[in-house]
Design a protein around this nucleic acid. Structure first.
Length: 276
DNA sequence: CATGTTACCTGGTCGC
DNA sequence: TGCGACCAGGTAACAT
């Protein structure tokens, strides 16, 4: 479910409301992808200072240590301001952070998500997850044309794979990868190093613009994504190719093609997106 | 080292 | 209505 825009839309939806809150209790459901790494009671009494994001991870900065939160494939958060606010945890709700300002709850049917408590960003467990992440596409100081162009030059894997890997740029998942490649008119199977300078430049621009626009629209709600306040995203109405196999390209009316790369599907227009 | 494949887990959808 | 096959927004660990 959640690519960078969904994670960022989620962050924005509860960050201010939870800032300064004291942790009153923590409860866990079924195991997530990784163990929390400490006893839930150990978190009680700490304060949530702020909520940041790195790639698809949310970083809850505590008065002591850090909580790393990943939504995996099917995760979503809900923040209920007042005291009772939320009903008892359901079958797919595996983490509750009860604070003096409301409860933050993780809903994640497939449990590919995780909540990990670490001492800080230098903690080995944090470094294992965060080191090696690519540039932040919403941060101009991080996401530069020079670094992007050099990164493409250095890889011969298909551009779709390079984008999904997140080592060059973070946050571009399966939906947005198809979208940005369509906007820059690049075939998803093109080896990254073979992309012309003109198209690479268009891709660089498209990534920045699409990510920013998708955040503004609250992300993409295909099935059940909503932000921490329960509000759905709207980017899906703007999508040009994702999920549109067989339907007419909005630019040239050629049918959109589905391509399998690894176990992931890419959608592209065979006329607009020729190889190099 | 770079790249490709598998595994994790549940639920929805589709064809028979 | 039931059942199996396949698909789904991610990514670490492994194999090549």
């Amino acid at each position: 479910m959640p690519e960078l825009p969904e994670v960022e839309a989620t962050r924005r939806s509860f960050a201010d409301a939870i800032a300064g809150a004291r942790i009153l209790s923590v409860s866990l459901g079924k195991p997530l992808r990784w163990p929390l790494g400490c006893a839930p009671q150990d978190l009680v009494g700490r304060r949530v200072l702020q909520v940041r994001r790195r790639g698809k991870y949310l970083l809850l900065e505590l008065s002591q240590g850090l909580l790393l939160l990943h939504l995996g494939m099917s995760g979503s958060l809900r923040f209920a301001p007042q005291a009772p606010g939320l009903p008892a945890a359901g079958a797919h709700e595996h983490f509750d952070l009860v604070t003096s300002q409301g409860t933050l709850r993780l809903h994640d049917p497939r449990r590919f998500g995780a909540v990990v408590a670490v001492s800080g960003e230098d903690d080995p467990r944090a470094r294992k997850l965060l080191d090696g992440l690519g540039m932040e596409p919403l941060d101009p100081a991080s996401f530069t044309w020079a670094r992007f162009a050099a990164g493409l030059q250095a890889r011969r894997a298909p551009i779709k794979t390079v984008l999904l890997a997140g080592k060059l740029v973070v946050g571009v998942g399966n939906i947005y990868a198809s979208e940005v490649l369509f906007l820059s008119r690049i075939h998803p199977a093109t080896p990254a190093c073979d992309i012309s300078t003109v198209k690479a430049r268009r891709l660089f621009t498209a990534i920045g613009q699409v990510m920013a626009q998708a955040v503004e629209l609250g992300g993409t709600t295909l099935r059940d994504f909503s932000n921490a306040l329960g509000v759905n995203g709207h980017f899906q109405h703007t999508a040009q190719v994702y999920g549109r196999a067989g339907q007419a390209c909005h630019a040239c009316s050629q049918p959109i093609q589905l391509l399998r790369q690894g176990q992931r599907s890419s959608y592209y227009c065979p006329r607009c997106q020729k190889t190099p």
